[in-house]
């Protein structure tokens, strides 16, 4: 096929262009020779078809590709039928549930100066009693001033579930005594702690009361509509006699009953927990402090036993 084998000799060529042209012709001719033979015999086609055919056969796994199961759009929710009620809170009656205040907590947190990490604290004194106006008093006791009996929990019937709760504002504990007994008292419009006295007067009381409890359709939790009542920063007589009430939606989580526990006295007992979380805007209550942001998170971890 090739009739001319060009000599590449840089010393005797007249120009670089001629050399390139000759070189190109040389390469082109030889490549053409190689591939034309292949093409003329249709070898290339046969080769490619064979390789491709083998590939398709070899790639056949003989397995049906099972697509992954679609994500279920319906959450898996399991709820039992536990009923927990305090009754008269008779000690030793295992059908009556008592708030284990020692192992419970009411925590608050808010963004420090509204822009940084969380500033956190807890209320040392709290309870689960509906504190009506006639009960807003100073109680000379170191224990719970009122029975923690204003609640009921029905796992499978949230319409029957209800609860009340309160905190004593001046018992906010951030671990900094100077702050807790100082700007906390003045900034929250309350009064200092008096030793041996549980202060449930309107000036020192913030309380919640559930108005509606319903299933959360997406989780095992419950959605709770509750009213938060507190005089806030305003300590005028009018505000104290008619404190502000805001409706808030929170989330209630039930930590199911666990039985078979043995107390220090050797008796069997059970426990369960309720965790309520909600937020409120402290500016709604007139709090001017800029140490915390507008939104305050509250987390109530209530543990109960039937001792």
């Amino acid at each position: 096929m090739i009739k001319v084998m060009p000599q590449i000799d840089g010393c005797h060529s007249n120009s670089g262009i001629t050399e390139i042209a000759l070189f190109y012709q040389f390469i082109n001719s030889n490549i053409k020779l190689l591939f034309m033979k292949l093409l003329s015999n249709k070898t290339l086609l046969l080769l490619l078809v064979l390789v491709s055919g083998y590939g398709y056969i070899a790639s056949c796994t003989h397995d049906d590709i099972v697509p992954p199961a679609p994500a279920t759009p319906v959450p898996i929710i399991t709820r039992g039928n536990h009923i927990h009620i305090p009754g008269s809170m008779t000690a030793g009656d295992t059908t009556q549930w008592k708030l284990d205040k020692v192992h419970s907590s009411v925590l608050w947190s808010g963004a420090y100066v509204g822009a940084a990490g969380l500033l956190t604290g807890r209320f040392n004194q709290f309870g689960m009693h509906e504190v009506t106006n006639d009960k807003m008093l100073n109680y000379s006791t170191v224990g719970q001033p009122l029975k923690d009996s204003s609640w009921a929990f029905y796992e499978s019937d949230p319409s029957k579930t209800y609860f009340n709760g309160y905190v004593q504002i001046n018992t906010s504990n951030t671990g900094e005594p100077g702050r807790d007994a100082g700007c906390n008292v003045s900034g929250m419009g309350t009064v200092a702690i008096v030793s041996g006295v549980q202060n449930l007067t309107p000036r020192n009381l913030a309380k919640i009361k559930s108005t509606k409890v319903e299933y959360d359709p997406l989780t095992n939790d419950y959605l709770v509509t509750l009213s938060l009542t507190w005089h806030g920063y305003d300590t005028s007589a009018a505000a104290l006699s008619n404190p502000m009430t805001k409706s808030i939606v929170g989330r209630l989580k039930y930590i199911p009953e666990s039985s078979g526990l043995i107390s220090r006295t050797g008796s069997l007992y059970s426990v369960f927990g309720l965790q309520l979380t909600f937020q409120f805007n402290c500016r709604d209550f007139g709090i001017p402090s800029t140490s915390v942001g507008d939104v305050i998170d509250i987390e109530c971890n209530m543990n109960f036993n039937n001792l």
Partner: peptide
């Protein structure tokens, strides 16, 4: 095209061939 041939050869030569790689290549 050599990549394809290489994978086919590897699949052919392997003691426990993985068809999924070749299947992927062929797709």
């Amino acid at each position: 095209f050599f990549f394809l041939i290489k994978d086919l050869y590897l699949q052919f030569a392997a003691s426990s061939p993985d068809e999924h790689m070749v299947s992927n290549d062929m797709n």
